[in-house]
Design a protein around this nucleic acid. Structure first.
Length: 573
DNA sequence: GCCGTTTTCGGCCCGACTGTTTTCAGTCG
């Protein structure tokens, strides 16, 4: 059994939290948290890295001790120190610290004085009015805790980026219209374009005495005001999404935007640079002693450290500061670079529009080409095409192309990769197509070894061009299937195949980390919408977001190429 | 527990808000 990175990270996070409750040194706690993040950020399972003989202590934040503990988890499936600690600090207390307002100190007090071991105990004690009697607790805290437990029950934790956009954009417009507001922008992971966001951070500059805070709290979607001050307020909207609003003076806009965009790790790295230079960075600016020497723009803040502007998508402390220092930041791909979409469906299977309607929509977006990739017969639920129906579609597209001006329809398919790694359509029809997009739709439960083998076997077919939605995940609904991504990418590189970044807002696979992995290997990717409607073609920008987070430049993306150049890249002979 | 172009020991980012305090600890981002 292969232990996955998320499981190891989870063990370290739990251990860190329990240590914290126990009252351990906070830097020791932080070391476990940092290690958890480092492991989670690895595109490849560390279990596989260990098997390959890699020394994990070379990873940032992982020394000899933690490398040993990782190995222990990989070998045994558990961490002995954590198992031991659980005997004195109940594991479920980690869930209790996840409630806002309850940190390690207060949870420790709850455990010691009221023998609270988990959320259920907490809820019972709160209902019985026992919490308010503890020192440091009061009636208000008790009420808040009960409300929060209820809220958690009702909703999940992270929100998909597209959903966050739909909720946050109208709020931003509302705030911009408040008298005295000068600038208003959404910062945080939203601005970094992460595929999901935990909350929304809005930054505003306003004239003195502006009532923006009051108006914010009065927004008609506000369900609860968590806190309200003169420079910072937090509310929870009816959707369950938490929104933080920060107000800063104009002279601090850049520093504040930098600060609230994060990521936390990027900020810490910048502040550490500052400390070395005898400077101090906070949300109000960069300071030399008492004097503010930068802060109006982000560019100004970076310039002070001899760095060019770093795009928000790169700010994860994944080497961007080093790259900036060496003037080697990538020139990130943009929506304007995209010349076409290589994955779209029509009414022939589970799409909603005809090829003609789809191509007009693509033309309206300025594209040079659009690939029609309807499902193959194995996907019965989508009325997948067999060779005969696909042949008819090919004829139809040929006739359409004769009429089309300024754009070309590409004949393609989303052909199923069958259990044994063969493709769901015969070579005799595959060879008639301009390109073939291949995908797994069944048998998600295979072991990583078997799934990897199955897909690589499919790549051996000379008509295999692009692997669609390479992990099969549906965010919030279905986990990615187990697969060795490194091996898949190596196999693709060997055979002249490619992988897809699926821009559907609930798919987003490949994700940012995978994009970076492909970039480092020199493997080009397609960014495709998998559109089932004309409007879906607009999902392209979400794919671009993840590509940018993965450092991709225009040349790294297949569909920034002209059809002529793309055709040459796809040719496998 | 990690880390080092000042260091193998002594550091490890910084400020706002809340609630319960009589001047601040705890928590959060």
């Amino acid at each position: 059994m292969t232990i996955h990175n998320t499981e190891i990270a989870k063990i370290f996070q739990t251990y860190a939290t329990l240590l914290e409750i126990e009252g351990a040194n906070r830097f020791r706690v932080r070391a476990y948290r940092n290690a958890a993040r480092t492991i989670e950020d690895q595109p490849q399972d560390v279990a596989i890295m260990i098997r390959a003989g890699k020394d994990l202590s070379e990873l940032p934040g992982i020394g000899k001790d933690l490398a040993g503990k990782i190995k222990e988890i990989v070998d045994t499936g558990a961490l002995g120190d954590l198992e031991k600690l659980k005997r004195t600090v109940p594991e479920d207390l980690a869930d209790v610290t996840a409630l806002p307002g309850l940190g390690p100190k207060r949870v420790q007090a709850l455990h010691e004085h009221l023998r609270i071991d988990n959320l259920e105990d907490l809820e019972r004690a709160a209902h019985a009015g026992k919490l308010r009697k503890l020192p440091g607790f009061g009636a208000k805290t008790e009420e808040k805790i009960l409300k929060e437990i209820e809220r958690r029950r009702a909703i999940g934790t992270r929100t998909k980026l597209m959903v966050a956009e739909q909720i946050a954009r109208p709020l931003l417009e509302y705030l911009k219209a408040v008298k005295g507001v000068k600038q208003a922008i959404i910062a945080g992971s939203y601005r970094r374009r992460k595929d999901t966001v935990g909350d929304i951070d809005i930054l505003v500059t306003a004239k003195r005495g502006s009532d923006v805070m009051k108006r914010f709290a009065a927004y008609d979607e506000v369900d609860e005001i968590v806190s309200q001050g003169t420079t910072r307020s937090t509310v929870i909207l009816r959707s369950g999404l938490q929104v933080d609003l920060r107000v800063v003076p104009e002279a601090s806009y850049g520093a504040a935007l930098h600060y609230f965009t994060g990521s936390k790790d990027h900020n810490i790295a910048i502040r550490t640079l500052a400390v070395k230079k005898g400077l101090k960075v906070n949300e109000y600016g960069v300071f030399k002693g008492e004097e503010r020497i930068a802060g109006k723009t982000e560019k100004e803040v970076y310039a002070l450290f001899g760095l060019p502007y770093i795009a928000p998508e790169l700010r994860e402390n994944h080497g961007e500061i080093e790259a900036a220092r060496k003037k080697r930041l990538p020139k990130l791909v943009t929506l304007d670079d995209i010349r076409g979409d290589l994955h779209a469906h029509t009414k022939a299977t589970d799409g909603r529009y005809t090829a003609e309607e789809m191509v007009q929509a693509a033309k309206a977006r300025g594209y040079d080409y659009l690939a029609i990739c309807d499902h193959s017969k194995h996907v019965t639920i989508a009325k997948g095409l067999d060779a005969k129906r696909l042949a008819r579609q090919i004829d139809k597209i040929d006739r359409l192309n004769e009429k089309l001006k300024g754009i070309r329809l590409l004949k393609s398919t989303e052909v199923d990769i069958l259990d044994d790694g063969s493709l769901d359509l015969p070579d005799s029809i595959l060879k008639e197509l301009d390109l073939r997009v291949c995908a797994v739709h069944y048998q998600f439960g295979l072991s990583a070894e078997k799934q990897t083998e199955r897909i690589i076997r499919a790549m051996d077919n000379r008509y295999f061009n692009i692997l669609a939605h390479p992990t099969g995940r549906l965010m919030g609904e279905r986990e990615a299937y187990a697969v060795d991504m490194q091996k898949l990418m190596e196999a693709a590189l060997d055979r002249g195949c490619f992988l897809e970044v699926n821009a559907q807002p609930d798919r987003m696979d490949l994700n940012d980390v995978h994009c970076r992995m492909a970039k480092d290997m020199g493997l080009r990717l397609a960014i495709s919408t998998d559109a089932h409607t004309t409007a879906n073609l607009d999902y392209m920008r979400f794919g671009i977001d993840q590509a940018r987070r993965g450092w991709l430049e225009p040349d790294d993306v297949l569909n920034t190429k002209s059809w002529k150049d793309l055709k040459a890249l796809l040719a496998r002979d």
